[in-house]
Design a protein around this nucleic acid. Structure first.
Lengths: 199, 199
DNA sequence: CGACGCCTTGATAAATGTCAAACGTCGTGG
DNA sequence: CCACGACGTTTGACATTTATCAAGGCGTCG
């Protein structure tokens, strides 16, 4: 699958990568930066379905059009995989089909975790989100959030005010330190216990 | 895939089909009745991850243990598919792998719709749930809900009281008629408009 | 009949959303 | 360099939604 990656494409902050309903011609792999996928409802609400960081693959569709839109959260570099050449390869090489299955299963697992997350309270959602971003970010205690509070709110299904207040409350109980989009984990066990009222 | 279905197995109402952490030896296809899959958290909350009706396949795992538990909602008949024979077939027959991919993609799509659903208000969730069950049930205006209010609440991430009140309010605006677990759709467009503040 | 499970309804409390204002940061242009 | 404006964020007061606690209704089954 890695062999099918084409040259890099660049997207500026907030640039559209693809729109809902566009022909789903490419898969994308994030090289640098980050991406959000989302749907916008007729009443204006936006639900972010996922954030993708370097190494993640998105744009995974089985229909022939995208079921959501994608935008660059920050300036971003992507490599594309043409769906048509992918399909051609899949026919000849069962291993590629296996890779697709693994990717789909992984996306399914992440989505299932999101369902569990959305059933929780605001504190648990925000804390879980920080834990997730910390793990995916890989770095030590410092988490850099590339996305705005509005993005986080639309991802967690709440308002920016509640996100902000919840971060403040987590800071007050000294689980984290908040500095705009930079978060420092001060007390990991406290953060985890807020994240998980039951794992 | 259909060729791999073994003989039927029977489960009484509320009987456990498999438990979280059990070895994931079988896929199941619902013949008759209905099934819920769920997780229980340490604080006692239960999140139902899905309902499966006749024709649906569940127990789909990529790890070697189940990530959730499954129980019969009502008396249920299932056909099992042994994972080991499935794996053996997949190696020889790429078409089987394709069927697996389709099943996984379908489950992913349904889970993504659940994420959208959980971001909505109580009214929208309940109305969407009724629409979903009506479509899956296939029958005309009458919906028979095999599951209890508690099951619905745990599926939609709310309390039984709110489910009950929301059904009552949908009945008051004459979108539906409620008779215990039997629902009649009186005004489909009204129901749809409550379900979807934006599709 | 009586007990039990399930559902509904009411009163109240807690969580979250809404509206509004102030603050800080950053980039631009004078 | 500084002033200004745009934008994102935080905070406060208040409204709305949903959960919690408690009681009662309605079937079914012994």
């Amino acid at each position: 699958l890695a062999a099918l990656l084409s040259g890099e494409r660049y997207f500026r902050r907030n640039a559209e990568i693809f729109g809902e309903g566009n022909p789903a011609d490419y898969l994308y792999c994030v090289v640098r930066g980050s991406v959000r996928t989302f749907k916008v409802f007729s009443d204006g609400r936006r639900q972010i379905s996922g954030f993708y960081l370097p190494g993640d693959v998105f744009g995974f569709e089985f229909a022939d059009t995208y079921s959501c839109s994608a935008e660059a959260v920050a300036d971003t570099r992507l490599r594309a995989i043409s769906r048509s050449t992918l399909a051609a390869r899949t026919d000849r090489d069962p291993a590629i089909a296996g890779e697709l299955l693994v990717l789909t299963a992984f996306e399914l697992k992440r989505t299932q975790e999101r369902v569990l997350l959305l059933a929780k309270t605001a504190q648990e959602r925000v804390a879980s989100f920080l834990v997730e971003m910390e793990e995916r970010g890989g770095g030590g205690n410092a988490i850099h959030l590339p996305m705005s509070r509005q993005d986080i709110a639309d991802y967690l299904g709440m308002t920016i005010e509640t996100v902000s207040r919840t971060l403040a409350s987590l800071e007050k109980c000294s689980a984290i330190r908040v500095w705009g989009r930079r978060i420092v984990v001060r007390d990991r066990s406290a953060l985890y216990s807020h994240a998980a009222s039951g794992w």
